[in-house]
Design a protein around this nucleic acid. Structure first.
Lengths: 204, 204
DNA sequence: TTTTATTTGTGCTCACATTCACAAACACAA
DNA sequence: TTGTGTTTGTGAATGTGAGCACAAATAAAA
């Protein structure tokens, strides 16, 4: 296929595909067709094929996609073939829940540091990590942590973000409500829990 | 404007607009132009105007949007002018964090019941609510709870969902990974935390 | 009243994602 | 070797949302 810009939407679906392939890997399946995979994931086969084709030829016609190889290739694309470390900012309830969240490890994601402003929390253990002072964010570059999860109150979000950017963070998963300004070089994903829930009543 | 289908994307932005208007309400602002609001929210004025116009005429030319009235109108559209009750299923760490989450109340959203399967957790207090047995989900209809937040392990998600649908739930905020089958009459929003985080490394 | 500066509301255009349709590639049986 | 049934990969068609430009409406100054 001639070069075409890869849609963000495609990138966003890759983790879903990866989860599907990983599960099939565990089930010792050798190959899977786009049709079978589509049924499992609840979407349509055309989209799976088109999405994967952006990254080259993955499957064999008449056969399907080789499970193990394709899983590995998607991991490579998403840079999940090596463990990716993320810093968590905010050791409140949500932050604590995220540390214990079991879903990250299957994607080779690891929360490798926790920061908080509150002196009461600093030094405390959460999981197997100790909460560090927010003053130590500047050490992230040395520790090769380029991802951050922001779970602080809205008022603190912008100033913490600026510290993170200075510390070399390139990807941000933001749970704080409201608009966060980041340089174009930083990829930001917003998860606004209250907004998400408040959409539902509309459809009642 | 002649009738046009309202895009889902527009609905998804309404909570953002509502938060903007609510804040301006607190600041005792009388009116706001799409331009000023756009700066605050970090998006463009055309989109705000187009989105609002789907629901009729909101503002006055040369002046802007009346803050209080527009906020109230958006609340009405989203059915947030009355408190909306939601049930939380799954009293794990994530569920517990959600109960304490302060962001819901400003949208008139309330977690009004908590359910779990684990007998160890049933009867325990979380916030000011007691954890109930999952067997009691069928009582949701009588309690007029039509929204549910699903924070259970992936294995349990489908069966719980079916119980919820039977109990008359019409809107579902799903934190469980994987594909969940729901009837077309039920609106489902998925928040897959691991998938979201795993998108970030791609952009490094 | 007239002019100037704003600002909304909306038809239109453009860009882009999704879906379709089909040729090419493969497996396997006859 | 030929034929049949799959399945991928992709150009093309379709559908849809975002961005734009501008007329209409308003306020305030001249």
């Amino acid at each position: 296929m001639k070069y075409r810009r890869i849609p963000d939407e495609t990138i966003q679906r890759l983790p879903m595909y990866l989860r599907g392939f990983s599960l099939l890997e565990d089930e010792k399946e050798e190959t899977v067709s786009s049709r079978r995979l589509a049924v499992r994931l609840g979407l349509n086969p055309h989209q799976i094929r088109k999405d994967l084709s952006y990254f080259g030829s993955f499957g064999r016609r008449g056969v399907g996609y080789p499970v193990r190889a394709t899983a590995q290739r998607i991991r490579r694309i998403l840079k999940l073939d090596k463990t990716q470390k993320a810093a968590l900012i905010g050791a409140g309830r949500l932050g604590t829940a995220l540390v214990a969240y079991p879903g990250f490890s299957s994607f080779n994601l690891e929360i490798a540091a926790i920061f908080d402003k509150d002196p009461q929390k600093i030094g405390k253990k959460i999981g197997h990590l100790r909460v560090e002072s927010i003053e130590r964010l500047s050490g992230l570059r040395k520790r090769k942590i380029q991802l951050a999860i922001l779970a602080v109150p809205a008022e603190a979000a912008q100033s913490v973000t600026e510290k993170l950017v200075k510390a070399g963070v390139k990807g941000l998963l933001n749970f704080s409500p409201g608009h966060l300004k980041v340089p174009a070089s930083v990829k930001k994903i917003d998860i606004d829990l209250a907004s998400q829930l408040s959409i539902l009543p509309y459809y009642l």
